[in-house]
């Protein structure tokens, strides 16, 4: 590991100023991803600004919902009674990720800013445009089972690993950011970006931008929500694909409003808007859900290695809706 300086931040504004003034400085939160990257030589910062002791670790009930401090641990967020009742997809997504130990350590903000688990990104001996811009993409012609099927570019074909980010996009959450230019509020669904010709940046945040909180707005949609994750093993693995669904259903079974967000398929949580449009205002049936998923998947461009993700995400979407409306499968039989 390269030598580095360590600064324990005393308040958020000072932390932001310290990082903003030093291109070689990085924030350190729970450390579950960054410390590993230091060991692997994936990133070599000169200074770590430790934000894990900042008082950003509370829950605040607001008129619109619940505000979660960026340092709230994944385990505490998942277990919170208000979150379990009002935003079950958030609890479910967190519980489907990592291990008990890591959830006790990993933070809300850090979860959103974790980096890809692409095997080439994590291996500094191979070219990777995300790790070393301009060096090329090894995954495009290499081991491709985990690659994106939507929104990829020649520069980068990887997917974003956060389960929480997928869930937040499904409940219209917002991310509060303190940066060198002041405070701003970013819809969670707009935090992450597609690679285009700039694979280096995972999000729209700039150097020195610090996530301070996440806002969860209360809604009928959020209350009826769930998360389905498909993995190579039963637990403690990243998603092959995942699905967050939030559903507001009228008494007659018509879809009043819906969110469908996919993980494991793109460089960002993939809001399946075409699928949502196909479902909104119509009676909810299993056939309608599958047709809606197909409408979204019409633009999928999987490599042969990742082709299995197309039927997998369609099936996982149908399963998510069945979990929310158990009668669905019965009706179609």
């Amino acid at each position: 590991m390269k030598e580095l300086a360590y600064v324990r931040a005393s308040d958020p504004a000072q932390a932001v100023a310290t990082v903003a003034d030093d291109p070689d400085a990085r924030f350190l939160g729970g450390g579950t991803n960054l410390v590993d990257h230091l060991k692997l030589g994936i990133t070599t910062p000169g200074t770590l600004v430790d934000i894990s002791h900042l008082p950003l670790d509370g829950f605040e009930e607001t008129a619109d919902g619940l505000t979660i401090g960026a340092n709230v641990r994944n385990s505490d967020l998942a277990a919170d009674r208000r979150v379990r009742a009002g935003w079950p997809v958030v609890s479910r997504a967190l519980l489907a990720g990592a291990s008990g130990q890591i959830r006790n350590q990993a933070t809300t903000g850090g979860n959103l800013l974790q980096r890809t688990r692409c095997v080439y990104f994590q291996d500094p001996t191979t070219p990777c445009n995300k790790r070393e811009p301009g060096s090329g993409c090894s995954a495009a012609g290499g081991y491709g089972r985990y690659n994106a099927i939507l929104g990829a570019s020649p520069a980068c074909v990887t997917v974003h690993p956060s389960d929480l980010a997928v869930a937040l996009a499904a409940v219209d959450a917002a991310v509060l950011v303190l940066g060198p230019g002041g405070r701003r509020r970013i819809p969670a669904a707009e935090l992450h970006r597609l690679p285009g010709d700039d694979a280096e940046h995972d999000t729209v945040l700039g150097h020195g931008d610090l996530i301070t909180a996440v806002e969860l707005p209360a809604s009928a949609l959020a209350r009826r929500s769930t998360y389905v994750k498909v993995r190579d093993r039963a637990s403690f693995a990243f998603a092959l694909v995942s699905v967050a669904v939030a559903l507001d259903l009228a008494e007659d079974g018509t879809v009043t409003d819906v969110r469908v967000v996919w993980g494991g398929v793109a460089h960002k949580p993939w809001r399946a808007e075409r699928a949502e449009d196909a479902l909104r205002g119509r009676p909810l049936t299993e056939a309608a859900v599958r047709a809606a998923a197909d409408a979204e998947l019409a633009s999928a461009a999987p490599s042969s290695d990742a082709g299995y993700k197309v039927p997998m995400v369609r099936n996982a979407t149908a399963l998510a809706f069945r979990r929310l409306v158990p009668a669905l499968a019965e009706e179609d039989r």
């Binding site: 430790d50 008990g100 130990q101 890591i102």
Partner: peptide, 27 residues
């Protein structure tokens, strides 16, 4: 593993189970 994947470095830290390999001591 020293990479947070095996759990053999688990301790109880301030009462909770916690990895020690993905933790910088200074923090």
């Amino acid at each position: 593993c020293d990479h947070g994947q095996c759990g053999s470095c688990t301790v109880l830290l301030d009462g909770r189970r916690h990895l020690t390999c993905l933790a910088l001591a200074l923090s």
